[in-house]
Amino acid sequence: MRRLPVYLLLDCSGSMFGEPIEAVKNGVQVLISTLRQDPYALETAYLSIITFDSSAQQLTPLTELSAFQQPSIQASGCTALGDALTLLAQRADQEVTKTTAEQKGDWKPLVFIMTDGEPTDDLNKGLAEFKKRKWGMVVACAAGAGANTDTLKKITECVVSLDTADSATIKAFFKWVSASVSSGSMKVEEIGAEATTLSELPPPPPEVNIVI
């Protein structure tokens, strides 16, 4: 079976402490509960959570939606986005099945990155590893005024921004991520191809601005 891997890279630096991190936790919970109701996603989507503070860690390895359990997420430290990209590349090498003559591999992974600040580590190193791999849709979200959309543009063409990192806005973002995973898992089956541009995703809610 061809799985649709979905990687969430979440900023858990100290600046996320309080309302933002609570909203992220809530968002992940809503994401899971919503996707479980979608037969396409329930069958094909596999989810992994990588968080980054002073370093990056994979809290949940790529797991089928039906078995996914909310990991414990806490905010502290710096913003090691570069490290997170390196880890993402490594984990994807391990977890995503490649196509062979006998077996169709997984679909190209969907990646959603959310950060509220500038990376505090060497972004370029992680970026180089990241760019070596093939990804499906990669969406980077700048949450609040502290995040730099120009930095995120180095990672992907698809950058969105949230004006504030409050719970309502973060919730709206996660709802959109959920709708995107839903449409992505339906699309791979119906059309047999991954989405690659923002225009192929469901239109984002008013809280989520597309950065051109």
Binding site: I32, S33, R36, Q37, D38, P39, L42, S66, Q69
Partner: peptide, 10 residues
């Protein structure tokens, strides 16, 4: 958490 039966979602 209890998943729905995927077959019933179709």
């Amino acid at each position: 958490a209890f998943n729905p039966d995927p077959r019933e979602l179709w």
